[in-house]
Amino acid sequence: MENFTPYASSAGGVLIGISASLLMFLNGRVAGISGIVAGLFTNPAMIEKAWRFAFITGLILGGLAYASFNPVEIMPRENMSTAILIVGGLLVGFGTAMGGGCTSGHGVCGMSRFSLRSILATFTFLLSGIITVYLVQHVIGGAS
């Protein structure tokens, strides 16, 4: 069980929870990243674009700020060609738009208000992710 970080991961999770709570408490909005990003492009109202733009800017700056003080080491993944990143990204974008949410919108915000749709969506994407990784790592990849 290498690279197991229960404390940092829990603390990071709590911060994500605090952010989601703040956005609901102050602005009355769900902190679902796919939805916020989608609205930035598809919602014509300027006032809608503005807060979405601010949130996304914060997301990028927050990641940058943390990583500047605590260098993040990420091992490059094997066999991650540009083509696979593109296919994967397309599936993530298409799927989250179709299913109305991603890990944050359904997994965090939706589950936290006991939405049946979000609970089912979360189990579905976890399951299909697990099956995909199984096929890639153990059936197609063959290596360990």
């Binding site: 993530v92 799927g95 299909s128």
Partner: peptide
């Protein structure tokens, strides 16, 4: 949609 997202995520 959730299933397609999961495939890309994995």
């Amino acid at each position: 949609g959730a299933a397609i997202f999961g495939i890309g995520w994995g």
